[in-house]
């Protein structure tokens, strides 16, 4: 065992021991796994029953017509994880001003409603980040990303810590709530709308 390997053991242990469990994590996880499992089983049964009904009705009533393929989508944990990962990756890309990565996740019709109520379209947003007029020093979730999936659309909501230097506004460090609407387009989740509300800030005076 080399000195480097000894140090690895020590430092990894130190880093790990600093991690503490949130009190609600265990109960939330157990509930999510157990309830999710039951819901998936019920959903599978419901889908199977619906499929049988559709097949029977198709044969009796809709003979000769096209089969109805509009069965409801199955929402699974993988989709939720995918969306959370995508959102986290977007924030990282914004901090790094990694424009190809940001462009990839922003839908063509993306629009941000800023905390002061200004709609900011995709090109203006990308331009501000690329030019450094909007310089994110830090941007990360501080709460779990709540995620609801409705077929090919999804809503994400979380609180973040933002440290940003904005041209004309200056350096700000804020907590903010975000509500993001994602859509699955050609197999890729892209953010379409984002609404940001600063924590503890009143609306601007007019």
């Amino acid at each position: 065992m080399s000195p480097l390997e000894d140090r690895l053991r020590t430092e990894l242990s130190e880093e790990a021991e600093a991690v503490e469990l949130r009190p609600e994590y265990v109960s939330g996880t157990v509930q999510q796994v157990l309830v999710g499992r039951r819901q998936r089983r019920i959903r599978a049964l419901a889908l199977a029953a619906a499929a049988i009904v559709i097949i029977v009705l198709s044969g009796v009533v809709l003979a000769g017509q096209g089969r109805d393929d509009s069965s409801p989508p199955v929402i699974d944990r993988a989709t939720v994880q995918n969306l959370r990962q995508t959102e986290r990756a977007r924030l990282t890309a914004l901090v790094e001003a990694d424009m190809p990565a940001v462009q990839q996740v922003l839908a063509d019709d993306f629009e941000l409603i800023t905390p002061d109520g200004t709609p900011l379209p995709r090109d203006a947003y990308l331009g501000a980040v690329a030019s450094g007029d909007l310089d994110f020093k830090a941007y990360q979730p501080v709460t779990p990303i709540e995620t609801r999936v409705y077929g090919d659309a999804a809503v994400l909501r979380y609180k973040s810590h933002i440290d940003v230097v904005a041209k004309g506004t200056g350096h700000r460090t804020d907590g903010a709530w975000h509500t993001c609407v994602y859509e699955n387009r050609d197999g890729h989740w892209q953010i379409v709308w984002e609404q940001t509300t600063l924590v503890g800030q009143l609306p601007p005076e007019h």
Partner: peptide, 15 residues
């Protein structure tokens, strides 16, 4: 598998 799916993200956000 997450990293493969999101290889373009390269790094995780750090505090």
């Amino acid at each position: 598998s997450w990293r493969k799916r999101h290889s373009w993200t390269r790094e995780t956000a750090f505090a």
